[in-house]
Design a protein around this nucleic acid. Structure first.
Length: 435
DNA sequence: GATGGCCTAATTAGGACTTCCGGTGT
DNA sequence: CACACCGGAAGTCCTAATTAGGCCAT
């Protein structure tokens, strides 16, 4: 099954010559970009079981690794960081590997779609960041030539109740905010509860069990070898001011998220996990070049809860707290909280996350079989996604009896797809009421 | 030649830390 | 004494927004 990993589909406008893949250069190239999330690691063992795609929409076979039981937490934690490396699945790498030539222009706006275990979650573009300045400031009207226009206020760090992904301008960057990083850790069984754990998941309270290790992981992620808890703690304290974190009084190393994603995965202590209070060197013996493909995804187990026996998680349990049970002090609306984390549910498509898919995207998807013929190599997530989308195409084709006049497939028959304006791929979060 | 559209490089502003520090509390 | 914790101040890094200039078509 497709795990909770999140993929970004880029309609790359200037990177890919799809014609060399035998597809129409008029259509946008679908590029899959890896998000800073460890769960994609499980895709290294891509299994082309296309027949199953025919049977179950969006279902992608899970990569099963027998190494999961023995995988060292440190390696996994390290891989958590390594997967953030743009080299692991960067657009550049993908292009170089599978796309013989770059440079031809595909004049489609860059757009991104997020696919999670819940299906296509929605636009990565962050509507809330769109400019709010519809009226030009007076100063701008005054000085056209000399002096710069007043800048639009740059979007601040999204707080946890806002969908956050790398946006289209940031695909090469490594901007995972600290609070996001902590949430990732809290949802990764390789690190939670070993290094960081929930103490009161419903209240968003967590503890840095091994503060130094967490700081080191953070430092590694930020390429700051000198990072320590003192420094990271300063960043955490800045979150107090910004309302992202609270300090839990009287408890050391305990912090509280002021709000949490609705579908946060809560990994709670098991009955055999030994928390590490010591300060072991988490980097010891772990190579930065460790093969990600050998690292099991922590999220696999989430899905395994229903599909197969859990391959690991000897003792820890994963609890998806019902949103209604939470007693967070979150001051913010939960309406926007959907995208940060993954769901533990098996349902790959949840209505509230269904996107609008453009005709261009769908046409591109129709060419995915050519992509699938390529060797996945170490970038299986791309092909997993290709398979995923390929199955969408097939379903699309099945409904082609009602193709519109422009040749765009009619997706109305698809419960998960809604056609946007042809030629301008727009990804609009679709609520269940929209269907 | 004038104009407008497009593209790109350079510049700039600002967010998110990072670093350092002095201090307090446990 | 070690460590956690606090918050001010200054700095760095990165990125988006903006501008300017070149090129080309009309």
């Amino acid at each position: 099954m497709l795990q909770q990993s999140e993929l970004i589909f880029d309609f790359a406008s200037d990177h890919v010559n799809m014609s060399q893949l035998g597809v129409y250069s008029d259509y946008p190239a679908v590029i899959v970009e890896q998000l800073p999330h460890p769960h994609l690691l499980s895709y290294a063992g891509l299994a082309c079981e296309q027949s199953q795609h025919h049977q179950q929409l969006f279902k992608v076979e899970q990569y099963e690794s027998g190494e999961e039981e023995t995988m060292e937490t440190l390696v996994a934690a390290d891989s958590l960081l390594n997967m953030d490396c743009p080299d692991t699945l960067s657009l550049e790498h993908y292009s170089q590997t599978f796309l013989p030539s770059l440079g031809d222009v595909i004049t489609t706006p860059v757009t991104q779609v997020t696919v999670s275990a819940e299906g296509i979650v929605g636009a990565v573009d962050q509507p809330q960041w769109h400019s709010l300045h519809t009226k030009k400031p007076a100063t701008q009207l005054q000085s056209k030539k000399r002096g710069r226009k007043p800048r639009h206020r740059r979007a601040e760090s999204p707080t946890p109740d806002i969908v956050v992904k790398k946006d289209k301008y940031n695909k090469g960057g490594n901007t995972l905010y600290l609070w996001q990083f902590l949430m990732e850790l809290l949802q990764d069984r390789q690190v939670c509860p070993r290094y960081i754990k929930w103490t009161d998941p419903h209240a968003g309270i967590f503890k840095l069990v091994n503060s130094k290790a967490v700081a080191r992981l953070w430092g590694k992620h930020k390429n700051k070898p000198d990072m320590n808890y003192e420094t990271m703690g300063r960043a955490l304290r800045y979150y107090y001011q910004r309302g992202i974190l609270n300090k839990v009084e009287g408890q050391r190393l305990v912090y509280q998220f002021t709000s949490l994603p609705k579908d946060m995965i809560y990994i709670t202590d098991g009955d055999g996990i030994k928390e590490e209070e010591d300060d072991e060197d988490i980097d010891e013996g772990v190579s930065d070049d460790s093969d990600d493909s050998t690292v099991p995804s922590s999220d696999q187990s989430v899905e395994d809860e229903e599909d197969s026996p859990p391959p690991q998680k000897k003792t820890s349990s994963c609890v998806r707290a019902p949103a209604t049970q939470r007693t967070r002090p979150a001051p913010r609306s939960s309406a926007l909280r959907d995208g940060v984390t993954r769901s533990a549910t098996n349902s790959l498509i949840q209505e509230q996350h269904l996107p609008i898919v453009s005709a261009e995207m769908l046409r591109t998807l129709q060419n995915l079989q050519k992509v699938q013929s390529l060797q996945p190599a170490g970038h299986a997530s791309v092909f997993k996604t290709a398979q995923l989308l390929g199955s969408m195409c097939e379903r699309q084709a099945a409904a082609e009896g009602s193709v519109d006049s422009e040749g765009a497939p009619d997706v109305k028959s698809h419960p998960g797809l809604k056609m946007s304006q042809v030629g301008t791929p727009q990804l609009v979060p679709l609520t269940s009421s929209d269907q």
